[in-house]
Structures are given as C-alpha cells and as structure tokens.
Design a binder for these strands. Structure first.
Lengths: 200, 200
DNA sequence: GTCTATATAATGATAGAC
DNA sequence: GTCTATCATTATATAGAC
C-alpha cells in the first residue's frame, strides 16, 4: 500500500521538523524521559516512545542502540537539573521539606528523577542505572553541601526519606498522607531531616 | 508426542503431592509470593509461578482467575505476619530501627511485603493493591499503637521512612548505605522515628 | 484435577527499500 | 535520514483431551 503523505510519512510531513539527526535524537530523548517517568523502564515501550517523538520505532535503536542505552541517557538527563535539594545550606531541611510536600501533591508536575527511579527499580538493570544516577548527582552534591563526618551516609539517608515520601504520596497514593495537613507534614519532615543534616 | 511419566506428568509423578485442589492452590500461592517479591508484578510470569509450584501454567488461572487476582491474594498473604513493627510501644522507634537495618543488609531474607510493594509500584493496578495492603495492615496497626493526634498521618510517615530505607539499601543498593556503620545507621533512624512516634 | 496445544496480542530488535 | 515490513520471543488466557 502506498503511504499517504497527508497523514503519514517522514517527520517533515507531520511535525514540521526537517530531517535532522540531532533534532530527532533530542525529540526521542525528550519523549523517553516522559514515557519512562510515567511507566517505568519495563512499562514504557519503544513504539510508544517513538510515537511521542513523531518518528518510527526504528529510530530509537538507530540513535541509541538499545532501550537500555536510551534509559541510561534518560537517567542523566532527568537528574541534571536540581530542584529539590537547594544550592545553599541555609535552612536546608526546611527547604527540602517544603519542596517535597509541594511536588508530591495532587496535580504536581509529573517529571521528576525520583519518579523515574521509583518506577524503574523492579528491573535490576534499570535499578543499577538509577543507583548510579542518584549517587553521582544528588547524593554526592548533598554530601558536599553537608560536610562533616559521615556526610555521604547522612546524605543517603536524607534521600531515603525523600524517596519514601515521594513513593507514598505520588505513586502509592496513601490516603492519610494525601489528606494530611500540608504544614504539619512539612513540619514533621523538617524535624526528621534537621536531625540528619546538621553535623552530628 | 506421548508424555514420559518418568520425567513429566501430573504433580503426583514429580512432587509426590497427590491430586488435591487445596494443596495445589497453596503451592501456587506460595510460589507466587516468592516470584512477585523477587521480580515485581510485571516481572513475574504465570509460567514461572506455575513452575515454582510444580504445576502447569494453566493451574494459576484455574484457581485464581487471573494474574491480578492472584496478586491481590499474595499481598494479603505477604502482609499478614508482622515482623518490622512490633506489638508493643516500649522503645518502638528503637525496635523498628534495629529490625530495619538488620533486614535490609546483604544476605537478609528476601521475603518481605515491603520488597513486594517496592517492586510492584510501577504498575498502577498492583500499586493500588499494594496501597490497600499497606493501609489495612501495617499503617492502621501502627496508628492504633501510637494513638494521639494525627496518629494515622504519623504512622504513614514512619512507613515512608521504612520503605525509603528498604528501597535504598535492598533494591537500589546505595553504596554509602551498604558500607555504613550499622550502629550509626540504626541510631540515625531511631532519632528520626522517635520524633515521629512520640505524641506531638 | 491436570495436562498439552493454541489463540491473541505485545515486545525489542533488524533488513532492506527509498 | 527515515520508512515499512518482519523476525523471534514472550505474555496472559482459554479449549478440549484424558
């Protein structure tokens, strides 16, 4: 059957994007961030990712070699902007607690490296890639910010709390946490993190 | 091809178990607990579960209707014995912290409702079933133990910490948490949980 | 009560045309 | 640079024999 260029065809016909390797790669990567964050490593298919980028499924392997390689790049892309752990130490626990409560509420933005991690840990390969992302990006950064003894360990523990709350509120949808008073929640989290983040 | 009863055939030939509906059901359920805990809802297949029980894949749907129904029973089975949250209030946070560190170390037993939950949250259906299991079993129990104001909310927050640590140590395998001094880790966790579990 | 065999759909990856 | 078409595999679920 001949292709109908008014409905199907190369990207230029559908998206206005010209045939361009870099632009296509970028579009696939962006679509992959969304799909993997929404459905996890196993739950997102290469067809779905390709469709989100307006290209055929073949392009995914063309530019990234395999689904696993694509996921590795997605992890780095997703962890690069820091939005939960602030850049300075003043009122660190307070800032993290507020951001955490705010970004795990209903209707919050659905693009977070923590969501990506939580939904991809059931597969050992993607879990390992997520581990590297966490350690190299947020954990190391927070540990440098903290300094003092066992900074790395305290940083990892703080991240455990962040991941646990993100899981219970955003993914599991625990009733008590979703109906809780937001200020009270933030106060509890602030208290827990403060004991961890202030040098022992 | 004719079946060779010395190698294949009904369960009585392989496992010594007689043809018995209740025993077969039980065997499938036990195998399913292991498989879902090891690989999560999407990662575990009915063939694999059936093989672990020494029966054919057909038996799974015969006795449980569908994979999803089977998972619902697995959640209840897995959450029923309480091993992390103790039954009395004395030194509650201390007991939880110690049990948590002990059961998330390398070589710890691999059968926990928290592992089952963490590896099944990427699928919305199994995540919802896990939510019900958490709320009806551990969260409610711990809240009753706590009493006081916002007991349910504080219970859910404590479970967030437990899940977060379990995730980072057992599943993600965070280097800093696996190499950390165990007593120091338990002390930090005790401190965080104590502020949460003692009435505000 | 349990089996083999099959229906149906979806997956990641690849070959070859244009 | 991108496509269509297809490969080989795997998934859950079901039909019918014994």
């Amino acid at each position: 059957m001949k292709s109908d260029l008014t409905h199907r065809g190369p990207p230029s016909a559908r998206t206005g994007r010209p045939r361009n390797a870099a632009a296509t790669r970028e579009a696939v990567l962006r679509s992959a961030v969304e799909a993997f964050t929404r459905s996890g490593y196993d739950g997102a298919g290469v067809r779905e990712i390709a469709e989100g980028a307006g290209v055929s499924a073949m392009m995914v392997n063309r530019y990234f070699g395999s689904k696993e390689n694509l996921f590795a790049e997605v992890v780095d892309t997703s962890f690069t902007p820091r939005t939960v752990v602030p850049d300075d130490l003043t009122r660190l626990s307070h800032g993290i607690a507020r951001a955490l409560v705010h970004r795990t509420g209903p209707g919050a933005d659905e693009l977070s490296p923590f969501l990506l991690t939580l939904r991809s840990v059931s597969n050992p390969r993607s879990a390992e890639l997520a581990r590297q992302g966490i350690e190299r990006h947020v954990e190391r950064h927070l540990a440098e910010l903290l300094g003092g003894e066992r900074a790395r360990e305290r940083s990892a523990l703080a991240l455990s709390v962040i991941l646990g709350v993100w899981l219970m509120r955003s993914i599991i949808g625990d009733t008590a946490l979703l109906e809780a008073d937001l200020d009270g929640l933030a106060r509890h989290l602030d208290g827990m993190l403060a004991g961890l983040l202030t040098s022992p």
